[in-house]
């Protein structure tokens, strides 16, 4: 019952969010700030995680596929396709659901409990549209860039296994990452990540917007935003994969 009621509330909130802004110039003033806050400020964490995961994934794959019957390109190919298909979209979005989701939920939640949202409403501003729309649009716009950045750095991280260890050569790795490349995987990954970006930002905004009480309750909203955002990502991952890769 609670799930149905929450879904209804979420849909009604989104109806208020996706309307033309009261003042276009206020939206375009807020939009670059959100691009910077939600997108550019996520670059360091995306970079660190992608390089390390690329490195570890290549090492693990090589160690677990050290069979003379398997071709030399196996490690590079597995690393590349795993990064392209899952890590740089799904896993990265799960990580960003924590960083960006909690940021959005706590920011809007704090505005709710300190009556800043009421102040906007009393002024006659559509607070949902003013606060949420720039965040959702900015995050959806930034996500493909973050994903491409992650893919590139992940593959780059894998290359370092050849440079820093003796378990494989960089030549073998480069052969693998070029072998049987399917450009559609990148397209699939980008589309998927944009849907996830929408889910992360809108679900977090929903929990923040309907926060009540005090600091403890904002913390709970933030947690709910991350947990439910992550569950939705996993659920939609199956759905999108079924639609786009079948």
């Amino acid at each position: 019952m609670g799930l149905i009621a929450d879904t209804g509330k979420y849909i009604l909130l989104m109806k208020r969010v996706f309307v033309a802004p009261d003042r276009g110039r206020m939206f375009f003033r807020q939009f670059p700030k959100e691009l910077e806050k939600l997108g550019l400020q996520s670059l360091p964490i995306v970079a660190i995680i992608s390089v390390f995961i690329g490195f570890i994934m290549t090492m693990q794959t090589k160690l677990n596929t050290s069979n003379p019957l398997l071709p030399v390109y196996t490690t590079g190919l597995v690393t590349r396709d795993t990064l392209l298909l899952e890590f740089s979209s799904t896993i990265l979005c799960l990580i960003l659901a924590g960083k960006v989701g909690s940021n959005i939920a706590s920011e809007i939640g704090t505005m709710r409990i300190t009556e800043q949202i009421d102040a906007l409403e009393i002024m006659g501003v559509n607070s949902a549209n003013y606060l949420i729309l720039p965040k959702v649009v900015a995050f959806v716009v930034m996500m493909p860039f973050l994903v491409i950045f992650s893919m590139a750095l992940g593959i780059f991280g894998g290359y370092f296994v050849g440079v820093l260890t003796t378990i494989m050569t960089t030549g073998d790795y480069l052969v693998g990452i070029k072998f049987a490349f399917v450009p559609y995987y990148v397209f699939y990954s980008l589309i998927k990540s944009m849907i996830f970006a929408f889910l992360i930002s809108s679900v977090a905004a929903f929990y923040g917007y309907y926060s009540y009480g005090g600091a403890l309750d904002v913390g709970k909203s933030s947690t709910n935003a991350v947990v439910n955002g992550s569950i939705l990502i996993l659920f939609f991952n199956i759905l999108i994969t079924k639609i786009m890769l079948n």
């Binding site: 704090t110 505005m111 300190t114 009556e115 800043q116 009421d118 102040a119 009393i122």
Partner: peptide
């Protein structure tokens, strides 16, 4: 116009 208990200024 409204004056809120906690001022409700935008941070």
């Amino acid at each position: 116009g409204m004056l809120f208990q906690g001022s409700a200024l935008f941070d």
